[in-house]
Design a protein around this nucleic acid. Structure first.
Length: 271
DNA sequence: CCGACAACCTGACGGC
DNA sequence: TGCCGTCAGGTTGTCG
């Protein structure tokens, strides 16, 4: 569920409850999710003060004054619930600060993960080492995108989903960015024209910023930690809109399947 | 090296 | 009501 804008929304929502606070208690209700939790996770977090709450790609990062960074991934259905009224099924981890703020990590499908690594080694951590540039960072631009697409036979959509090339995009924002740039998601990367690559390089940060401003997209699971729903789904131009009119030309939006995942696009506008 | 696909899970929804 | 198939904001390993 969560792509870059949703993770950004979640981390911003955790900041007031966590930044500068100390973890008083970390309760693990199971051994792990996608992967086992680190053995000493609770021990290393308990008593540690949070010095930073941030994000890299789709990973939430929490630095502590013990020199550790908590790396959290929400998978498809993960959610952080701030000051939960009651404990729900699938609340797998419970964090409590010494100020009494509680956060439940809820994840029905259990595709999420928690890892802990020395902050100094964050860049070389296996989960993060291979990630491409942040689409909202200074390393991302049209020249970089052109290099990533050059000579590639893979469809444009597959390239944008590849976290090693650009980190943070998922199914929704890839579909939306390709529509804005008028690129057929099935077109080979190497066959995308220069002007369209430039349009894509502009569209990606734009659509992400708009989504962040809207609090992300709440289709099923996503909500900010305080329960506020995102509303960017109201701004979708193609995602989930099969059969509905293209906002640009009114031709019905097409749904296709690429490597097992739904792709939405306009056959007339996107070439 | 590259790309397609299955697998990992639960829950919601539509059709019969 | 129930059962079945399908689908879902992701990642990773395997196979050809």
């Amino acid at each position: 569920m969560p792509e870059l804008p949703e993770v950004e929304t979640v981390m911003r929502g955790l900041t007031p409850a966590w930044l500068g606070q100390r973890f008083a208690r970390v309760q693990l209700n199971r051994d792990g999710l996608r992967r086992p939790f680190p053995e000493d996770l609770g021990q290393r977090l308990t008593g540690a003060r949070v010095t930073a709450v941030h994000r890299r790609a789709k990973y939430g990062l929490v630095d502590t004054d013990r020199g550790d960074t908590l790396i959290l991934h929400l998978g498809m259905s993960g959610r952080m619930r701030l000051d939960p009224i009651e404990i729900l099924k699938h609340d797998h981890v419970l964090f409590e600060t010494d100020a009494g703020r509680r956060v439940a990590f809820n994840d029905p499908r259990r595709f999420g993960s928690l890892d802990l690594t020395p902050t100094g080694q964050i860049a070389t951590h296996p989960l993060l080492a291979g990630l491409g540039p942040e689409p909202l960072g200074t390393d991302f631009n049209a020249a970089m995108l052109a290099r990533a697409f050059a000579g590639r036979a893979a469809p444009a959509k597959a390239l944008l989903l590849d976290q090693r090339l650009i980190a943070g995009l998922g199914n929704i924002y890839v579909c939306e960015a390709l529509f804005r740039a008028r690129i057929d998601p099935r077109r080979a990367g190497g066959a995308v024209s220069r002007p369209r690559l430039a349009a894509l390089a502009a569209a990606i940060p734009l659509v992400l910023e708009e989504a962040i401003a809207a609090g992300g997209s709440s289709l099923r699971d996503h909500a900010a930690p305080d329960g506020t729903l995102g509303y960017f789904q109201a701004g979708f131009e193609v995602y989930g809109r099969e059969g509905q009119p293209c906002p640009a030309c009114t031709r019905p939006i097409t749904r296709t399947v690429q490597s097992g995942r739904s792709t939405f696009h306009c056959e007339r506008c996107q070439k």
